[in-house]
């Protein structure tokens, strides 16, 4: 149902006769209030991550060596790739808001699709190439023959994951099982790493969920120049996810 029939017989998209809720003076007031509410919510999100950044700062102050070594276990390449993916998705969300404002329905959806693909890519890179090898010692290989890795023998999931002895076990706190640690505070580094990146990844999932909802509703013709509040507020949430990663990337991957 992208259109509705009016009395005059002209077909209208649903955004064209959008009515603001009765307790608002105008649609503009409604929009401003919704945006203000979203910003207030975003501040609470910032304060959630502030706790993690604070833990990072304090533990780094106490154990600089553990953090230097821990940062050395991370691959800058994947951090960089994920940063690029998130920046591009942030751009497409900003473009989606613009397209809704200009009633470019096709490009609104296209931009949202690109954003969702980026969200999926981010999570894929994170889990396949970063979390899984560090946590379990199983590496994901694109090479189907696995000829040069045959020595270690153990594989999982039809040979897609290959075990490398002595690599896994880089886990937080009591789950720590990495035999080649060089500093007694390394479990703490992993606690900060997993705490920060996993809560961020959770936000990526939630943000992708919101944008999927926007996408589904956009097919009903709900969003257009007169009504794009939800596109804008969901976009703000997505930008916050990007914002947090902009700081997590240098703190975890680049500073040592």
């Amino acid at each position: 149902m992208t259109t509705i029939q009016t009395k005059s017989g002209r077909k209208q998209a649903r955004w064209e006769n959008y009515q603001h809720e009765a307790h608002w003076r105008s649609a503009a007031d409604e929009f401003d209030a919704a945006k203000l509410g979203m910003w207030l919510f975003l501040t609470t999100e910032v304060l959630l991550f502030a706790g993690i950044f604070c833990a990072y700062a304090m533990f780094r102050m106490l154990y600089p060596e553990a953090f230097a070594i821990g940062s050395g276990y991370l691959d800058v390449k994947f951090g960089l790739l994920n940063t690029v993916v998130l920046l591009i998705s942030s751009f497409t969300v900003a473009m989606a808001v613009r397209c809704a404002q200009k009633n470019q329905q096709f490009w609104l959806r296209t931009n949202l699709y690109i954003t969702l693909v980026c969200a999926g890519l981010f999570l894929l890179i994170k889990f396949l190439f970063e979390y899984t090898p560090k946590w379990s010692g199983y590496f994901f290989f694109l090479d189907p023959t696995l000829g040069h890795y045959e020595k270690s023998g153990q594989t999982a999931l039809w040979g897609m994951f290959h075990f490398v002895e002595g690599y896994g076990g880089k886990r937080p706190g009591a789950f720590f099982d990495y035999p080649f640690a060089q500093h007694y505070a390394e479990p703490l580094w992993w606690a900060v790493y997993y705490g920060g990146t996993a809560i961020h990844a959770l936000h990526v999932v939630i943000g992708a969920g919101l944008l999927t909802w926007v996408l589904v509703r956009s097919y009903k013709g709900i969003y257009g120049p007169k009504n794009y509040t939800m596109v804008e507020t969901s976009g703000l949430y997505w930008h916050l996810v990007d914002l947090v990663w902009i700081f997590l990337f240098p703190l975890l991957y680049l500073i040592h």
Binding site: P64, E65, A68, I69, G72, Y73, L74, D75, V76, K77, F78, F129, P133, K134, F139, F141, H148, Y149, K151, S152, V164, E165, G166, Y167, F180, Q182, H183, H256
Partner: peptide
């Protein structure tokens, strides 16, 4: 890391650490 001869894929090789790490 790990078994000699079984080099890690490029993806997860950490860089050599340099600089001051006094209490290692």
């Amino acid at each position: 890391h790990g078994q000699a001869g079984a080099e890690l894929p490029d993806a997860n090789r950490s860089f050599s650490r340099v600089g001051v790490t006094p209490h290692l």
